[in-house]
């Protein structure tokens, strides 16, 4: 090999080549990042354009001036703000109740010893293996039995005790809330609920924040469950309302894109402010595994 040493590129050349390759790769990655985000920008641009601009056959990235007209048309084709309000209601109530129920369940699994604990825990694990599509029919049936069709409770209540949430809280309590603290609270005369509410709950904040992100995104984006249980347009959540105008003749795309863009804003704004937390929250189940 010694004789071939002169064929080996010198240190400087290698460094240069590596640097050039890195710059090239970075360019490719930046371009693909822009392409990934592009559909959202495009939908915002389209929402300012009128029909002839949308159906023109030349590419232009200019904003149109039909935002107001599109907005008016949007309100004509669907009860837009009603649907937005329904989604906000479902997402907020659902997320809040999830935080309460999951923290209670997770706390119980972390702190107490009781009969049937292992069995319940096994059930919890087992239920995670059941994909959402499978439970769609049973879910619809029970909602119908309970007379909750067309009622928003049916859309949020069944999803407030997610196995993921209960695990997350349990894990957090086990790993970061010292046993001594709970015992001290007990010695001070705090009851079980008081210990949970005023001692443990404030310490759960990081886990609750993660759970809130996961649940809010889930409730805001949900489509399949509302699709089967909410029937009247006044009860529609935003995903349903948007999808319902897809079928109308001569779809007014400017208005539909405006509605789509507005419906994305709550999540997008949260993402811009807290992208790190959202990314780690939404992959937390996976990464810790």
């Amino acid at each position: 090999m010694k004789t071939l040493a002169f064929l080996k590129p010198s240190q400087e050349v290698t460094t240069f080549l590596t640097k050039a390759a890195m710059v090239l790769l970075a360019t490719v990655l930046i371009l693909s990042a822009i392409l990934t985000v592009f559909p959202f920008i495009w939908s915002a641009i389209l929402s300012t354009r009128d029909r002839s601009e949308i159906f023109s056959t030349t590419i232009s990235f200019a904003l149109g001036d039909s935002l107001a007209i599109n907005y008016q048309r949007l309100l004509e084709i669907m009860p837009f703000w009603q649907a937005m309000f329904n989604s906000i209601y479902v997402a907020f109530v659902g997320t809040t109740i999830s935080l309460l129920f999951c923290s209670m369940g997770g706390y119980a699994f972390a702190v107490f010893k009781f009969k049937g604990k292992s069995f319940l825990f096994a059930m919890l694990v087992g239920s995670m293996m059941i994909p959402p599509v499978l439970s769609l029919i049973p879910y619809f049936l029970i909602v119908q039995f309970l007379g909750l069709l067309d009622n928003h409770i049916a859309v949020w209540l069944p999803f407030t005790t997610t196995p993921f949430g209960i695990f997350l809280i349990r894990q957090h309590v086990v790993s970061s809330i010292p046993k001594e603290l709970l015992e001290a609270a007990k010695l001070d005369g705090a009851g079980e609920f008081r210990t949970y509410w005023s001692v443990v709950l404030p310490l759960m904040k990081p886990a609750l924040a993660t759970l809130a992100i996961v649940q809010f995104v889930f409730f805001w984006n949900m489509f399949m469950q509302p699709l089967v249980v909410l029937n009247s347009p006044d009860q529609y959540v935003i995903t349903q309302a948007l999808r319902s105008v897809q079928g109308i003749p001569n779809t007014p795309w400017g208005s539909v894109m405006l509605g789509t863009t507005i419906s994305l804003l709550p999540i997008l704004i949260t993402y811009v402010c807290a992208s790190k937390q959202m990314i780690s929250g939404l992959t937390s189940g996976a990464v810790k595994g």
Binding site: A33, I34, T36, P39, L46, S56, W253, L282
Partner: peptide
Amino acid sequence: WLTSAYFLPFITSTVAASLIFFNMYSPNS
């Protein structure tokens, strides 16, 4: 920055994103 951009589609509503793609896929416009 790059990761945030790549992750963005995952957090947005599938219905909203599909509507945008439905429009982007249209044959003439």
